[in-house]
Design a protein around this nucleic acid. Structure first.
Lengths: 238, 238
DNA sequence: GCTAATACCTGATTTGAATCACAGCTTTCT
DNA sequence: AGAAAGCTGTGATTCAAATCAGGTATTAGC
């Protein structure tokens, strides 16, 4: 049972095993769906989706990181989401023929799993509990977006930078003595664009935070959170 | 058939007839659900929901306007949504026991229709097409939130104010000779808070827009859009 | 109808982020 | 390995929005 076929099969399973969406399905149903799933790979910098393109599938990130973004009228890149292993997207287009409203670009080599609209549609009609799970996941996405929206509305830039660092620590941080280490998925410019501030302002804030002992710059792509509580205070968490 | 009972019955129907969510249901099913619906009224200024409270029902606005908001750590009120007739909310809590993440306050006398979680749950399990409709509505909400998020990320304040005016014209505007008339649902302070800018800055922007002939202040609560295209240019629509 | 309280506008000043400019440092590509 | 292109950090300057302050309209309550 260690034949290559079987291994490939295991590999396919990984995608849907990782997505809470399908957690309610029996192993049998899971295998059925696993067979329908397509796989694709992308190099760093490649576009998975471009704004205005059609969306035919639900996309699950199997490996790597991607950013979803649009361009503002000023030509700046506005990042909307960072997705990594286990995240999925494309749900909002499942029951509409709307065009993609953002670009999605690989930040590293990426492997994705695809489930076409019509296939998922069938699953939802025959498994109402999956539909309910999806509704609940969408609710989470909305709540997350509401938080992001609110933190954008905060005028105080220190608070926004602190919020971003804490979010990153949560999503990309690994525990280490001295505090969680964040492997930054995007450049300073990317972070600044996400926050809607200038690149230089972000640099200065990070320097200041480091002077104040809140964070420690390990190397350009790695930041260590030294004082989570103070960051939390700045971010304005109650 | 003009008995009071029947009229009350019609009145109840209105709620769910107005929500696209139930559009796929047969008249028979619709009547069934209509019977389950509860009604409540609120005076201007009353809270429908407070942050941290439990959410037991889907809420449909039958009449009036409400604002959903949180308080920032600086004590400022951050408005997340304005809902009016036909809008519904509370979906994100349907399948979780999470507490409400925002307050909802009546901006005018308000009538709402309530459908409890468990009732809606039953509907979703027996009517997969309603579930699909709900997923699609949630997708729309997400898309709307993404737009709001992006416009918050725009540094240019003129663009943000212009975007708000166009959104309001769309949602609250009535056509009139000379341009759509907007009945403002919230005060200047509310608008400023929604945009994350100072009240004074908003006043100045509105004055400037009026000087430039883009809008016309009819009275304090009414603004007429005179030059939609120029507003669109400012907002950065392509 | 009058008073009080609230919302609104506008000017003067301050403040903090954007912009400009440039040098040091990385990564990439050949 | 070496050159070129792309990132990043920091100072100097500019500029736009926040804040402070005062006066005027509008609404709410008696």
């Amino acid at each position: 049972m260690d034949s290559p076929q079987n291994c490939r099969h295991c590999d396919r399973n990984l995608c849907i095993h990782r997505v809470p969406l399908f957690s309610s399905l029996s192993e049998e149903n899971l295998l059925q769906i696993a067979g329908l799933i397509q796989h694709k790979s992308f190099e760093k910098g490649e576009l998975l989706i471009s704004e205005g393109g059609s969306m035919e599938s639900l996309i699950i990130i199997h490996q790597g990181r991607v950013k979803a973004f649009r361009y503002t009228s000023a030509g700046r890149e506005q990042i909307l989401y960072l997705f990594s292993e286990g995240d999925f997207f494309g749900e909002q287009y499942l029951f509409s023929n709307l065009r993609a409203t953002y670009n999605v670009e690989a930040l590293s080599p990426v492997k994705i799993c695809l489930l076409t609209k019509s296939q998922l549609h069938k699953v939802l009609l025959t498994h109402p509990d999956v539909a309910i799970k999806l509704i609940s996941e969408l609710g989470k996405r909305i709540a997350q977006m509401e938080n992001a929206f609110q933190s954008m509305g905060i005028r105080d830039v220190d608070a926004r930078v602190a919020t971003l660092l804490l979010d990153f620590a949560e999503k990309f941080g690994v525990d280490a003595p001295g505090g969680p280490l964040i492997t930054l998925p995007i450049s300073r410019e990317g972070m600044a664009n996400y926050l809607g501030i200038a690149r230089e302002t972000l640099s200065r804030k990070l320097s200041k935070f480091e002077d104040d002992g809140l964070i420690q710059s390990v190397d350009l792509k790695t930041i260590q959170v030294r004082d989570r509580d103070s960051l939390g205070d700045l971010a304005g968490l109650e």
